[in-house]
Nucleic acid binder design. Structure first.
Lengths: 197, 197, 197, 197
DNA sequence: CATGAATGAGTTTTCATTCAT
DNA sequence: AATGAATGAAAACTCATTCAT
């Protein structure tokens, strides 16, 4: 029983550290955030952080990779479940735009990684792979939309990457914007997929 | 005459330092690049860098801001000169896509700034202002295209920002891609503006 | 128990650093003494010094201020305890002259502070305040001596400051002198207070 | 003729540099004052300073030693000229007290030298010698005063050094004081010499 | 002679990481 | 397991001095 409780405590502490790290990395950048900052914010001792993560790098790895997998599953669930491509795409865009506004924290992390690929080679690779998987997910949806005549013709892969680029750029640009833009933006993004308007 | 030559030498050295700094910042990131690295790469002494730039920060400021102004003038020249909106937009996209591939170095700098706005507050502000100016440049072009019936309806400002986001995201994503994609991408980007296809 | 020992070790190390710093500052001056010098002399690592003092400035602050408070208490104990002013004054002078010779190290620190008040504004202020307190301590003693007719008339405050100036100057001048002078000097200093001879 | 003018210009520039250096050394200390600071304050170029003084050290040497010799001559003129010891001593004290208040700048320099003898070994030696010469000048005057019965008995040398210590200490302490104190202080200082009051 | 430019040698300070308790 | 203390390695920045023009 004591074991169980200990294990729970560990998980809570780990979560606290992750949380603090995510916030601080996002706000001040990886290099300007010290382990001490994180420890203080998480309410643990400086050295304790190293019992959960063997290095500062491992910490950001966890931070970036864990949500990545989840989000892929989530996108899959949205995309696979349904065969009305136009509506599905619109829902996906809505979800992602909301994420841009609400989850800015996580996007900042991604930007830092993508902006300094030499500092984070493995993460960069993982993100590129994520992009590929995401585009692969998009592809059949776009094709189906084209077959149904709802979407204009065009190379589904190129279209997918174009949207992916847009989505990432939105993260860079829109973070501080009021979410009033969000709605209009969705329609505008739909055009990338060739929705006739 | 001696003066002239001196001044020229100074400019050359300054340029060498800028060049080295840009390359290294882009490759390894601002924080992992030391002044010594830059000095060695530029073939000058460590301390010399400080006779040209009073601090590491001032260096990146110059690096980011100087091209920014030039590029705005350049975009203006493309956009203003002509009143065939669709063609003009296509040319603009081509130019910018080529830039993404060729000038990757500069874009990496921008990404680092945008990814760590707290570390570079002034630069972030300047980049936001640049975005606004760029979108303002786009707006009348989009309007005219809509009036001529070449482009679908839609809020010109939102459309402008959407393209700007796309362009920035392209910088994040496409840097390593072969330029085969470029052509297709242009057509795809045109859709953002509402080109009927 | 372990705690106790740790804390003791800490205090010992801190003392070692203070000691080394005092010696070196006194010998070579604040600016020519590097933290590395101090660390080596104290037998600790360079970075360790910063776990005890957050900066070189804080180090000299401690060095100067801590003994200052003690010494004031000590002077109070000498002065307050007794109502034979002449004897008390003589004892005070003796003590201080011995200090000049024995504690030269500390006086050198004071000289450096007083010689560069712009570099050490807070310390300078503290020393000025110390001077005022010291003179305030002296004042009633001088008055009583005058009432008893043992000391010549004169503004007690001015007399106090004159002695304080003398004492400080003695630190500047006598540091290298053999203490043979000390005795004679005491008698001579008594004259400042107006002892009839 | 041109030679002459050139030479004059040189002397003026030298004087400007000395002036600037004295002010800045006194205000901010030797180590915190850079050659650049001095050059700017004197209105000459950084490198020019080195055509007048071969090093920063030589600069302070000149600054300290030149007035020292003058002042000794001046004190001699005061002391030698007259055989009314008590009056002469009083005049000397007055002159020196005025100097403390008016020439604070120069005294600050001396304090810095005396406070860091290891950094300025030659200057320290010169100042010690100055002290000896000064005391030697005082000695016969004190003796004569004692013979005339105007001053109490006591070792003339010790008395001389005591006054010298007082005078130096006054420089440390009184620099910021209003000169109201000056007058009273003179009388008080006379006591060191044994004036019966 | 004056000076702008260049630089080597140094110094404080920071921080991820390790270790002993 | 948790943590306070210790530290090696590094980095930005400074400045007296030298040199070429």
């Amino acid at each position: 029983m004591a074991r169980k409780i200990n294990e729970e405590l560990r998980q809570e502490k780990r979560a606290a550290i992750c949380d603090a790290a995510k916030r601080l990395f996002a706000a001040n950048g990886f290099n300007l955030t010290t382990i001490s900052n994180i420890a203080k914010e998480a309410g643990v001792s400086h050295a304790s952080v190293f019992t959960y993560f063997s290095s500062k790098e491992e910490l950001i790895h966890s931070l970036v990779l864990e949500p990545l997998e989840e989000s892929l599953l989530f996108y899959e669930s949205i995309i696979r479940e349904d065969n009305q491509p136009t509506q599905t795409l619109r829902r996906l865009i809505e979800v992602q735009m909301r994420m841009v506004v609400e989850q800015g924290t996580y996007l900042r992390l991604l930007q830092q990684v993508l902006g300094q690929p030499n500092q984070f080679p493995e993460l960069t690779k993982a993100l590129t792979e994520f992009g590929e998987k995401f585009v692969n997910l998009l592809e059949p949806l776009i094709r189906k939309g084209q077959e149904l005549g709802e979407l204009s013709e065009g190379d589904a892969k190129v279209i997918g990457w174009t949207y992916f680029a847009y989505f990432n750029g939105a993260g860079l640009i829109y973070l501080d914007l009021h979410d009033g833009l969000t709605q209009f933006t969705v329609e505008c993004a739909m055009r990338i997929f060739g929705l006739r308007t």
